[in-house]
Deep mutational scan, measured.
Amino acid sequence: VTTYKLVINGKTLKGETTTKAVDAETSEKAFKQYANDNGVDGVWTYDDATKTFTVTEMV
């Protein structure tokens, strides 16, 4: 189990959250659901070296 981080650069929501998951794909699903639940829709990137997802909304 690995800890993954999500950085949110939204128009109205900014911040970070973490989750523990067995792999990046599992954490990505959880993070995308979290973003969707909070009305964040944007461009996703992933940095495997830091286990960090970033979602950026276009303004």
Rank of each mutant, 00 (worst) to 15 (best):
V22S: 10
D23Q: 03
N9Q: 10
T50I: 06
T56S: 08
F53R: 00
G10F: 11
D48F: 08
I8M: 07
E25G: 09
N38I: 15
K5I: 11
M58R: 11
T12E: 09
N9H: 10
E25F: 12
V55M: 04
W44K: 01
A35V: 09
T56W: 09
A35W: 02
K51D: 02
T26N: 06
S27C: 13
D37A: 12
T12D: 09
K20M: 14
Y4E: 03
T26F: 05
E16A: 08
K20S: 11
G39V: 03
T3N: 06
T2Y: 14
T45E: 10
D37L: 11
A24V: 13
L13I: 13
D41R: 13
M58F: 13
T12I: 11
T17S: 08
K51F: 09
E28N: 05
K5Q: 04
F53G: 00
D48Q: 09
D23M: 03
G10T: 15
E28H: 12
K14T: 09
D23A: 04
A24G: 04
A21K: 03
A49T: 12
D23S: 09
G42R: 01
T50A: 06
L13H: 11
E57S: 07
T19K: 07
T45P: 00
D37V: 09
Y46H: 01
K5D: 02
Y4H: 02
T52S: 03
T56P: 00
L13C: 15
D48N: 09
W44T: 00
Y46S: 01
T52F: 01
T2L: 11
V40D: 01
W44L: 02
D47C: 09
D47S: 05
T50S: 10
A35S: 04
T50L: 07
A30I: 15
T54Y: 11
T26M: 10
D37Q: 11
V7K: 06
T45G: 05
T3D: 07
V59D: 14
I8T: 03
I8S: 01
I8F: 07
A35Y: 03
V1L: 15
A30L: 15
T3S: 06
G39W: 04
G42I: 03
K14H: 10
K11R: 13
T26W: 06
V55S: 00
A35N: 03
T12P: 04
T45R: 06
M58D: 12
D37C: 10
K11N: 10
N38D: 02
K11Q: 11
T19M: 15
